[in-house]
Design a protein around this nucleic acid. Sequence first.
DNA 1: TGCACGATGAAC
DNA 2: TTCATCGTGCAC
Length: 183
Amino acid sequence: MQKLPRAFYDRNTVDVAQELLGKYLIHITRGVQRIGRIVEVEAYLGPHDLAAHSARGLTERTKIMFGPPGHAYVYMIYGMYFCMNVVTEREGHASAVLLRAVEPIKNVVGRTQGPGLLCKAMRIDKRLNGHDLTSGGFYIGVTRKTETALIVKRPRIGVDYAGHWARRLLRFYIKDNPFVSKR
DNA sequence: TGCACGATGAAC
DNA sequence: TTCATCGTGCAC
């Protein structure tokens, strides 16, 4: 399993989002290695994207999004779930990719279809906010064998308040994969 | 210092 | 369609 380098994240967010499909999210806690294959993501394009948290500007919560690429942006939603993102593009661009679903590969207990369930099953919480994904313990990897899957493009979920940005096709998932969230 | 609300998920 | 549950951002 090859760990993705910082250069992978330091690129156009839509490209990073689509290329994250099929990659492996790895989280090691107390010697237990949990692995999920990424099958669904959403791209958030920066402060001009009204659906992105960074549209509010630099705040205590969004400072990770405004930071360098290749870091985890983890936040609590609705007081009971966590959402996991990877920060993309150059520092200050404040864009990210939300991981919406993974396919359980190893040591993953419970359902993983949806950003909240994914974090619960992968044991991802606020403590990982700001974690450098090019370091150990929590990162994204790729296997040598590359499989080309068909990518479906749809509007993002739960961002109807964002005007025309809500209609942009920035949700990507692997066609016919059973672990993609149902909405 | 207070309060409305959300990149959710589950029940009804 | 409603609700659980609470940190964040902004109004006051």
